[in-house]
């Protein structure tokens, strides 16, 4: 039934590219889920039940990875044998770090003032920066095969994903 050696793209029947068709990804995932849903194997042998479970888990993992742009780029680099060094590469362009610091300061201020409007505005700014970086990623990965450039963009997106999450969390907290 399953081929555990397939990578996430192969599993979901997509070309290994950064630019993907989200509708196609969703559709392909739903199809696999329907085929391997553990409920379909309740009458099967224990081996079949276990395989369907593993297969469903693998499909979940593949979908989650490909759905998220940062994770998708990280995975594409992983397939190329390139480590994104998010754990140990601390050298980022100074202006990018300045921007991160500025965002952190503003978030702190806005949270302190319980200013949801200001937090929303920051979120917008972060999303637009993310979109810009994702466009750069597409060029680096799909057109130029510039793996190191792509790895640096992934590190930047990793920062932005984190602060976005924190700001969203703060907004939810204030809205409650």
């Amino acid at each position: 039934m399953s081929d555990f050696l397939k990578n996430h793209f192969e599993l979901l029947g997509l070309a290994p590219r950064f630019e993907i068709n989200n509708a196609e990804l969703d559709q392909s995932y739903r199809k696999i889920q329907a085929e391997v849903h553990p409920d379909k194997f309740v009458a099967g042998t224990s081996t079949e039940r276990m395989q369907s479970m593993q297969w469903a888990t693998q499909a979940n993992e593949a979908y989650r990875t490909l759905k998220n742009p940062t994770a998708r780029a990280r995975y594409l680099l992983h397939l190329q044998g390139v480590d994104t060094e998010e754990e140990n590469n601390t050298a980022m362009p100074a202006e990018f770090l300045m921007l991160q610091m500025e965002w952190r300061e503003k978030t702190e201020e806005a949270s302190h003032d319980k200013d949801i409007g200001a937090l929303d505005a920051m979120l917008k700014e972060m999303l637009s920066k993310s979109a810009e970086l994702q466009a750069d990623l597409q060029t680096a990965l799909d057109q130029e095969q510039a793996w190191q450039t792509a790895a640096e963009i992934v590190r930047k997106l990793s920062f932005i994903d984190k602060i976005r999450y924190d700001v969203e969390h703060e907004i939810t907290k204030l809205e409650d």
Binding site: E86, E87, T90, M92, A94, L97, R155, S158
Partner: peptide, 8 residues
């Protein structure tokens, strides 16, 4: 100035 991508 340095930064840790994994934790922000």
């Amino acid at each position: 100035m340095v930064g840790a991508p994994a934790c922000g």
